[in-house]
Design a protein around this nucleic acid. Structure first.
Ligand code: FES
Ligand code: FES
Lengths: 144, 144
DNA sequence: TTAAATTCGGATAGATTTGTCTTAAATAGA
DNA sequence: TCTATTTAAGACAAATCTATCCGAATTTAA
């Protein structure tokens, strides 16, 4: 469904959001320990999220990653997925035709767009804040 | 969403179904011309579908691929996806945890399973026959 | 029986994704 | 200013996915 990079990206963003809500900036090490992901690869993804202004990175001692508190309930999963995986999941044809086109549709088109749009709406309608609360209350987990 | 192999597999199966409904067996060449896919790679996928008894292959002159007419409205897309891509799309965690587990869910679990189950139901509820009719009437297309 | 047509299977190659390593740059604090 | 800490960036490596190549096996038909 999502690439590994995207999975790590979402999990990392959720942890950063959770800690940012508590006023804490977190280091790369803390993130990869929390979400159980490869250090250097995760660092690349965090750079990408920082370049897309989804997270803020700070170098030097006590540096790390954080998210503007005020933005956390305004950052939707769709933004992260789009930054990491692009928009193919929202726009692509289910059977791999070069583009999804209702005027010359593949046989699966009508059924596929229903599911694809549901996924899109779910991602567009879910903020980091909503998911971070479940983490904070211990109801959900970022590794296992 | 699906792998390239799976996309080719579904498109190939649909073309074979359409031709089988017309009593025609089709060669690899005819298939790859119709769905615009790489020959040798497509051949591998067809072998896989044949081993999974979704299609029937015949060697020799006038050989090729076909599907038992009586089975066509009974073969669901889910079988093809499962044969080619496995069941990760039905069972996998959206955030990449080793397994999806409602007892220790990831933050996206509740929302993700809704979409994933819709996708699963769509694939389980769609037969080759249903999609092949759209092809036959010229309403849908396997390449563009 | 021979030749041609066709799929099968294994080896190989290319492309993409995933992951690592090393050095540079920035920053805080002694 | 010096040093330790931390992220940034680019080169590299490994794994996986996609695609190709070639010879073997099977079958039809002359
Ligand atoms: S054309 Fe295939 S999903 Fe729209
Ligand atoms: S645990 Fe992540 S989707 Fe179910």
């Amino acid at each position: 469904m999502f690439s590994k990079a995207c999975e790590y990206g979402i999990r990392a963003a959720l942890f950063i959001a959770q800690e940012s809500l508590n006023g804490q900036r977190v280091s790369l090490k803390a993130i990869t320990a929390e979400i159980d992901s490869p250090d250097a690869f995760t660092a690349k993804i965090l750079q990408l999220l920082a370049r897309n202004e989804i997270i803020v990175s700070t170098k030097g001692p006590n540096g790390g990653f954080e998210i503007d508190k005020k933005k956390i309930d305004n950052i939707m999963l769709s933004e992260i997925v789009d930054a990491v995986d692009g928009d193919s999941i929202y726009k692509g044809c289910g059977l791999g035709l070069k583009e999804c086109n209702a005027d010359k549709p593949c046989p699966l088109h009508n059924r596929f767009v229903l599911v694809r749009n549901d996924l899109k709406k779910m991602l567009e309608g879910t903020s980091l804040f909503e998911l971070a609360t479940g983490l904070e209350t211990g109801l959900t987990f970022l590794k296992r």
